[in-house]
């Protein structure tokens, strides 16, 4: 038994190292005072300061944020309505299965196929309206398309957990439809909606593939910028940018975890 414990612990530590060593290297070399090479030349924060003077990077950060916020807002509204529509109405069983299948499509299809399909579809839509030229608008549509499903799944699981008798009790206590919605259903659903929105936001920040296929020259986001940059040459400035992104991710994850924890204990 002791031998197994030792093995488990060693493997776990090894795996953790495997996950974090590369990321730590990025953070490490982001404060290295040299433009080329991987030998230590002293500590500096220059690369971080330079980030904030780089118009292209600032624009990319702005694009990333706009993309994430807009797509999250729209997908949360659509996904929440979808979840209520699916769970709270007496649809025939076959229809429920069909709805469920459509909702799970973005989960079981490799994202590159969704991206390819969107490229082709936008190609046709472009003949109708120039809105569908590659760019931020197309990217927002792409992001919403995979976010909606995830939001709907999260909100629906919350809806199911609220159960029928709470709403029946409200009816029994004379609540009109709108009173029920504002005083009972929405407040109880709100944690699910927020959790869904946070998931959508993180998915958007995390996405690369959909953005890569639907982006235009004016709509570069941070992941796209980093990808293009590292294919040419890796600079300490990219390390600094990546470290910052990593930092934001860590904060987001902590906020999200705190929130879902509170939700589960309540």
């Amino acid at each position: 038994m002791k031998k197994i414990n030792l093995l488990v612990n060693t493997m776990a530590f090894g795996t953790m190292g495997f996950l974090y060593l590369p990321l730590m290297a990025v953070a490490f070399f982001s404060v290295n005072n040299t433009k080329y090479g991987l030998s230590w030349k002293g500590f500096t924060l220059d690369w971080y300061i330079k980030l904030f003077h780089n118009e292209v990077i600032l624009q990319a950060a702005w694009n990333t944020l706009v993309l994430a916020v807009v797509s999250t807002l729209i997908s949360t509204a659509l996904g929440t309505a979808l979840a209520i529509g699916m769970d709270r109405f007496p649809w025939p069983k076959k229809m429920n299965t069909a709805l469920d299948l459509i909702l799970h499509l973005p989960v079981i299809i490799p994202d590159i196929i969704l991206a390819a399909a969107l490229v082709v579809a936008f190609g046709f839509l472009r003949q109708v309206s120039s809105l569908f030229e590659p760019g931020l608008f197309s990217m927002i549509i792409g992001h919403i398309t995979f976010q909606v499903a995830f939001v709907a799944l999260v909100v629906r699981s919350r809806l199911i957990s609220i159960g029928k008798d709470i709403e029946e009790a409200a009816r029994d206590l004379y609540a009109s439809t709108s009173y029920l919605l504002w005083k009972i259903t929405l407040p109880l659903l709100m944690p699910g909606i927020i959790a869904g929105a946070m998931l959508a936001f993180t998915l958007s920040l995390d996405d690369f593939v959909i953005s890569f296929f639907t982006a235009g020259p004016e709509s570069v986001t941070l992941p796209l910028f980093i990808f293009a940059a590292v294919r040419r040459v890796v600079t300490p400035q990219i390390h600094a940018l990546s470290t910052l992104v990593l930092f934001v991710t860590i904060i987001l994850v902590f906020v999200m975890e705190r929130f879902t924890r509170k939700l589960n204990t309540k």
Binding site: A77, L78, G79, A81, L82, I84, G85, M86, R88, F89, P90, W91, L99, I102, L103, L105, P106, I113, L114, A116, A117, L118, V120, A121, F124, I141, G142, I144, T145, V148, A149, A152
Partner: peptide, 30 residues
């Protein structure tokens, strides 16, 4: 009730139809 349910379902489903199912079918065609 069905009408109300459709009201909730339509925006999201329409979206998924136009930007997920339809592009998928077009991809097959292409």
């Amino acid at each position: 009730l069905i009408k109300r349910g459709a009201l909730f379902l339509t925006p999201g489903m329409l979206w998924l139809m136009i930007f997920l199912v339809l592009p998928g079918l077009i991809l097959i065609l292409v």
